[in-house]
């Protein structure tokens, strides 16, 4: 790993942790509502620097943020970890398989949905073990995930555009697409 990559991962992780922390401070009307703002950073990392960087940033963010909040290795951490890793993998796969089919918004939606599905599956297997409970709550979670996924996708799109505009010469391969 080059030192430039390390610097980049550290910076992106710092942004992601800050967003993650900020998000947990926001009051929400529904207790389980999470906006997934940190996914913006994961998506930007994926599109600009590739899958490895995105995965590193996700792992660092989840582990460090959970240590800050005191939930490391607890139930909330397991859910967060499963959701984060699976959404990064899903976005990476979707981007690799269909390079031009989905824009940032579509990728963000894919990430949000796989995050939700992974969390519901984990919660079902590990904690709830009652299919009715999962079925009742899953459409609500999916709806919230869709709306926040679109918002995050638009923000990511905006960010990527501005980064490319500012230092376009550094991303020659992307600019040509």
């Amino acid at each position: 790993m080059q030192s430039r990559d390390r610097y980049r991962i550290a910076l992106l992780s710092a942004y992601a942790i800050a967003l993650h922390g900020f998000e947990s401070l926001l009051p929400t009307p529904i207790p389980w509502l999470r906006l997934g703002l940190a996914n913006i950073i994961t998506l930007v990392a994926l599109l600009l620097y590739g899958f490895r960087t995105a995965m590193m940033v996700t792992l660092i963010r989840i582990i460090i943020a959970s240590i800050f909040r005191g939930t490391f290795l607890g139930p909330a951490f397991i859910l967060s970890f499963g959701g984060g890793v699976s959404s990064t993998i899903a976005m990476g796969l979707a981007y690799k398989i269909s390079r031009n089919l989905f824009g940032p918004v579509g990728l963000s939606l894919i990430g949000a949905v796989s995050h939700n599905i992974a969390q519901l599956a984990l919660a079902y297997v590990l904690f709830i073990q009652r299919i009715e409970a999962v079925l009742i709550i899953s459409p609500v979670i999916l709806l919230i995930g869709t709306l926040s996924g679109v918002t995050n996708g638009l923000v990511s799109d905006f960010l990527i555009r501005n980064i490319l505009k500012k230092n376009g010469d550094k991303f020659q391969d992307l600019a040509r697409e």
Binding site: N100, F102, G103, V105, G106, G149, V150
Partner: peptide
């Protein structure tokens, strides 16, 4: 920005 939202994005959004 709007242009960068592809047809697949819209479809996925509406389906979800």
């Amino acid at each position: 920005i709007i242009k960068n939202i592809t047809l697949a994005d819209w479809t996925l959004f509406l389906v979800l």
